[in-house]
Computed example of a mutant assay.
Amino acid sequence: MNRNEDILNPTEADQFGLAAATLLRQGSQSLPAGIKDRLYAARLKAISVKKPEKIRIQQHVLTSSTGSWSSGSRSFWDNVGWIAPLIVLVFGLIGIAQWQQDSRINDIAELDVALLTDDVPPDAYADSGFMGFLKNGPLAESDQDSLDSAKSPS
């Protein structure tokens, strides 16, 4: 015999209980008055001894004009649990802003180092003629040849 077959599910147990109560009620009508009185007293005693069921009630009440919510048995972490993700978000945004600022500072420092270590003096970059030279490139070979022939006293 399988042990799981002997156990009733809650609906079957309720149906069995109702059927048994109906049979007992029908059978109790034909009992003598003394037995009925003893059954009634036993029923009252059983009801008085029965332990009360524990019912879990969650209560959310606005406690005062400060607007804070409280509940009877909530732990500290349940009350402040929503704050932790907010703090992580704020620190994350601060970290990202700091990282971007450091990146900008490093880029500017690299540009300054390149300017200061270059062969061309920094004032040349401000000269408009130098900018034209950078845009057009060095003199063409034909221009270079004409300059060389002009310089040589042949």
Rank of each mutant, 00 (worst) to 15 (best):
N2V: 05
N2D: 05
R3C: 00
I7W: 08
I7M: 04
I7V: 15
L8N: 09
N9M: 13
D14A: 13
Q15D: 14
Q15E: 13
F16L: 15
G17R: 12
L18V: 13
L18Y: 08
A19P: 00
A20P: 01
A21E: 10
L23S: 15
Q26R: 14
Q29V: 10
S30E: 10
P32E: 10
A33Q: 13
A33K: 15
G34M: 07
K36M: 14
D37Q: 14
R38T: 14
R38N: 14
R38P: 01
A42M: 15
A42K: 14
A46R: 09
K50D: 05
K51R: 07
K51G: 04
R56P: 01
R56K: 14
T63A: 07
T66I: 01
W69Y: 07
S70E: 07
S71F: 00
S71M: 01
G72R: 11
S73N: 15
S73A: 15
R74W: 06
F76C: 05
F76H: 09
W77F: 03
W77P: 00
N79A: 11
I83L: 10
I83S: 04
V88H: 04
F91C: 08
I94R: 04
G95K: 02
G95C: 01
D102Q: 12
N106F: 08
D107M: 07
E110F: 03
D112F: 08
A114K: 11
L115N: 02
D118S: 15
P121R: 02
D123I: 11
D123M: 09
S128D: 10
S128I: 04
G129M: 01
F130C: 00
F130E: 00
M131P: 00
F133V: 06
L134E: 04
L134C: 10
K135L: 12
G137P: 00
G137E: 03
G137Y: 01
P138E: 07
P138D: 03
P138I: 09
P138G: 06
L139C: 01
A140M: 03
E141Y: 10
S142H: 03
D143N: 01
L147C: 07
A150D: 13
A150R: 03
S154R: 14
S154D: 14
